[in-house]
Nucleic acid binder design. Structure first.
Lengths: 159, 159
DNA sequence: CTCATTATTGGAAATGGTTCCCATTATCAA
DNA sequence: TTGATAATGGGAACCATTTCCAATAATGAG
């Protein structure tokens, strides 16, 4: 039952301290929500969930913390085209590496893990090539497919 | 000098008419700017450029036209993370298919065409698989790499 | 443990890209 | 030419995200 880190707090405390950031109740709560969530959440989603655990939280702090987390690479920030950013914990906890399939009709997002291995393998090679050629330190990649889900295809696409 | 379509107007008139849209001076000017541009432009960039050709244009019309163009697949809309969307003509005119390398430090964007063939080949296969499995009609894909360009890497990344 | 330093906070206001509204104008088919 | 109506543009509305700042809380030193 007990993990290997009893007495030393959650896994991310070390990361935070290592970067000179303080541990606060708000940040604890945000990380808690993110760890629990298995979907990509908007800042407001996160704010609401955190608020029910820790009502003193402010939306501003949510944004600030998410920015820090994204900078540290603990959180990935996505844009699915509906005007608000989505956040999800970078792989490590529950979530495995996946990419997104976005319906441009209803904004539904499907996480897929199929083909991921092949994709990641190619991406690694491409990353290497690009890093060398353009002298970039690549830290991340984004792959998304856009299209219409079955429902939206029926509505719009003829028939 | 003369193209093969003298007398019948620009290439996109047909596409527009085919979709039931009217041809207007503003739309002409917007397409003109987009065709000329070889970079991804923001809506405001486009507005300013069009404004110098056709001062009567309004920003609202630029947004409206871009949305139509994106829906028709003539224009691709990108988010590079700086809070404003970028648009570029889908391949066909000058531009060849490319992907983007985005510097998270200074927001510089590099278009690259290296590795594209391999990537596109894999993407095609993946698209096929995803379409079948999730019953999606995939119309588009997005690949971007994020990282720090040489300059930003020097500033931030130690040294 | 206490204190001082200073990062962090939350609320309200500001920002800024994008969309909405609507009276006016322009396109296009007949 | 004309009528139906799509398209326009300007300003206001919208809304996610940032900024500002005085109050608060986390941390390290003593």
């Amino acid at each position: 039952m007990r993990g290997r880190n009893e007495g030393m707090g959650p896994w991310w405390h070390g990361r935070f301290r290592g970067c000179g950031y303080r541990i606060t109740a708000g940040r604890d709560a945000i990380l808690d929500v993110l760890t629990r969530a298995n979907k990509h959440l908007s800042a407001e989603d996160i704010y609401l969930k955190v608020h029910s655990i820790y009502p003193a939280i402010g939306l501003t702090s949510v944004y600030r913390t998410l920015e820090i987390l994204a900078d540290m690479g603990l959180v990935l920030k996505f844009d699915f085209g509906d005007g608000r950013a989505r956040y999800e914990l970078a792989e490590g906890s529950k979530s495995s590496h996946h990419h997104h399939l976005v319906c441009t009709g209803c904004n539904r997002v499907i996480d897929y893990t199929d083909f991921i291995d092949e994709e990641v393998e190619l991406l690694k090679r491409t990353e290497k090539g690009l890093s060398d050629k353009y002298n970039f330190r690549i830290t991340n990649h984004l792959i998304q497919f856009y299209g219409l889900c079955d429902k939206c295809a029926k509505k719009k696409g003829g028939e």
